[in-house]
Design a protein around this nucleic acid. Structure first.
Length: 638
RNA sequence: GCCCUUGUAGCUCAGUCGGUAGAGCACAUCCUUGGUAAGGAUGAGGUCACCGGUUCAAAUCCGGUCAAGGGCUCCA
């Protein structure tokens, strides 16, 4: 007779069961067997088939919880692997983890999987689900595990085990399929409901490009077809918002084979938006007590040696410019130039902090496969600034930057952030003292702001700790834009000093910061965030004047002039086309206001306003202009 | 960089077995003068990404280059 043990559940519920009772029995007693996919025993994930051995805190994991969904998807990945093995028995299985929004599994197979293969595999998966195969956990010693996977001719699994897995090694079996896996898993393949294979791609074994290229299949699964459909719909929406697509449709930017990969051509409509962004940026920097500097696009190789870029950033730098026999290189960063300005004269502690900003265009080598629209390019403009200060100014300056950042990003419509504090990495320069001081200053600033943040241990730059901010867009995706980095290294390397109140030379601290990151990338994020339907203050064409017939052109021109006189960007559609077509095209161009004028409007000096939303009103001409003007002045979001 | 896919008119894309290039949209001209998401006709527009090879003949087959797209981070 087993002794009774007590399982404590949430809400002070206690359940006593004999030791050795499997959790699925416990779950059944609790009447929760339908939705439960696993359990947390004292915070550790366990299979439903595991036994309750001793007194413990018990939590039930449903597929609606993040952990439960992980279990569900991990089993989905196993079912996919089983399906692949059944269709293509020569395939070797490798690893198949759960990722955000789904799962993947990497296979060693003689050729890439085709979309037709995916259809077959998905069909087979559904069949395996229908078989309702029980999934069982097997515990093995290292030798047993190696023997098992050698016998099954799965060399990748053997390698993983030999590479230092600790006993007990666990595997999961469903039907004839056995996979090395930590688990936990669903009790049966029959528990899976909505599953979809999405795409294929190459992936290196263990993520190392020196290793063999494997064939990866991505998929996702949900506990209901409704949830799956909603997810697929979101993927569609993401595709529709693709900034490369919209960039072309809205005539904002392009690239050209003849110019080169990763180099952006800004068309008039993109460039006017860029001007608006940059004007706003400059105005706000002036208000925030920054000064502007401007620096060249290249410098002698020697400068980059002194800055250390040629030792730690060489692979991202372009070289090969020869000026009268002296080697020059295009700049990948602006900092050395700002330092040279600092060093152009003696600085006093009374001068600090110095805040110097520049929209500085830099060029960095990116691997051809990494290039992506505006998000990853080889030439871009950083909204850069360097703050030179003494050590005890770090914290107030960081506070100021944080306030400034939320103000600037907020104006663009980004109100949600994820914030990371990255601390000292293994390879670093500078004294531990300084690291501690700077890290404490960053942390204290974040705490004072009451901002929630996560610590990214060891992810700081070698020259100092940093704060990274990711903005969340309208689809909930996050984008890294803002970075605020403390630097002890460059002031040291360049022998920067200021005269302190003691009359002695001291070394300033340098804070690098970019709020938008790069104008190109930020622009790409803006496009996707708004799906091209920009707030009026940003829209390249703010108003489209649409005369109904040729007879109304004069009035249309007058209206356009009035709009332009108060700084509203306006175009007139003079074409000999019907109004319906003109509206359609203005709508597709996502122009905020269509101003339609005909006989009626001329008679009463009014304008028929069709908003992008489809709302129609007729208002007196002057009122219409004032209202739009006000909306732009307030940078109102739509 | 590596693996896979793609590259045909300004855009989106057809083009079969290798036989010498097509549509819609956009553009131009004309007709139409209109009331809130596509009026009609006619016309112009191509070194089929580039280089080389096979062939009587290449957009099509082969090799290379360039560019674009997906993947290469979230470890059994």
């Amino acid at each position: 007779m087993n002794k009774e043990i007590t399982l404590r559940l949430s809400g002070d519920i206690e359940k006593c069961v004999p030791a050795g009772t499997p959790f699925f029995e416990v779950v059944k007693m609790l009447g929760q067997s339908k939705d439960t996919v696993g359990v947390l025993v004292n915070g550790l994930e366990k299979d439903l088939s595991a036994m309750a051995e001793e007194d413990a805190k018990l939590e039930l994991l449903t597929v609606d919880s993040p952990e439960g969904l992980e279990i569900y998807r991990h089993t989905s990945a196993h079912v996919m692997a089983q399906a692949v093995k059944e269709i293509f028995p020569s395939t070797k299985i490798t690893i198949g983890p759960v990722i955000k929004d789904g799962f993947y599994y990497d296979y060693d197979f003689e050729r890439p999987f085709t979309p037709e293969d995916l259809v077959l595999i998905e069909k087979k998966m559904k069949e395996i689900i229908k078989r309702r195969l029980p999934i069982s956990r097997i515990e093995l010693t290292k030798e047993e595990a190696i023997a098992l996977f050698k016998k099954r001719d799965e060399p990748y699994k053997v390698e993983l085990i030999e590479d230092g897995l600790t006993e007990p090694i666990t595997a999961y079996q469903q039907g004839d399929f056995i996979d090395l896996c930590r688990g936990p898993h669903l009790p049966s393949t029959g528990k899976l409901k909505a599953i979809k294979l999405l795409s294929t791609g190459g992936a290196y074994w263990r993520g190392d490009e020196k290793n063999k290229m494997l064939q990866r299949i991505y998929g996702t699964s949900f506990s209901s077809h409704l949830a799956l459909d909603a997810h697929l719909k979101k993927l569609e929406e993401i595709k529709k918002r693709d900034h490369r697509r919209l960039g072309k449709d809205l005539d904002l930017f392009s690239t050209s084979d003849q110019i080169g990969a990763g180099l952006i051509l800004w068309h008039p409509k993109g460039a006017i938006m860029r001007k608006v962004i940059e004007d706003f940026w400059r105005d706000e920097h002036l208000k925030a007590d920054y000064d502007f500097v401007a620096t060249p696009h290249m410098a002698k190789r020697e400068l980059w040696e002194q800055s250390g870029h040629l030792s730690f950033y060489k692979e991202n730098m372009y070289e090969g410019i020869d000026v009268d026999g002296i080697p020059y290189q295009i700049k990948p960063m602006n900092c050395p130039f700002h330092i040279m300005i600092y060093k152009s004269k003696l600085r006093s502690y009374r001068d600090l902090p110095l805040r110097w900003s520049e929209l500085g265009t830099v060029y960095r080598y990116e691997r051809s496969g990494a290039l992506h629209g505006l998000m990853r390019v080889r030439g871009f403009t950083q909204d850069d600034a360097h703050i030179f200060c003494c050590p005890d100014q770090i914290e107030p300056e960081i506070l100021k930057v944080l306030d400034f950042t939320t103000h600037v990003l907020g104006t663009f419509g980004f109100k949600d952030y994820e914030i990371y504090l990255s601390t000292r990495p293994e390879k670093y320069v500078g004294s531990l003292d300084r690291w501690q001081q700077a890290t404490a200053a960053l942390e204290s600033a974040l705490k004072q702001k009451g901002i929630a943040y996560e610590i990214d241990p060891g992810e700081g730059v070698f020259y100092g700790p940093k704060i990274d901010m990711k903005i969340k867009d309208s689809l909930g995706r996050s984008w890294q834009c803002t970075t605020i980095q403390v630097d002890f290294n460059l002031p040291e390397r360049f022998g920067m000093t200021y005269r302190g109140d003691d009359g002695k030379a001291h070394q300033p601290i340098m804070i690098h910061r970019a709020l938008l990151g790069s104008i190109e990338r930020f622009f790409g994020v803006l496009i996707e965030h708004y799906a091209g339907a920009f707030p009026t203050w940003l829209a390249p064409v703010q108003t489209k004047v649409i005369p109904i017939t040729e007879h109304h052109q004069e009035y249309a021109n007058l209206l356009q002039k009035k709009l332009r006189d108060v700084g509203i960007r306006s175009e007139v559609d003079h074409r000999n086309e019907k109004m319906g077509l003109k509206i359609r095209e203005a709508q597709l161009q996502k122009i905020p206001y269509m101003l339609i004028v005909g006989d009626k409007e001329i008679a009463e000096q009014s304008v028929s306003v069709r908003q992008r939303s489809g709302v129609n009103t007729t208002v007196p001409l002057d009122l219409c202009i004032t209202q739009i003007k006000e909306e732009i002045a307030l940078k109102r979001a739509v």
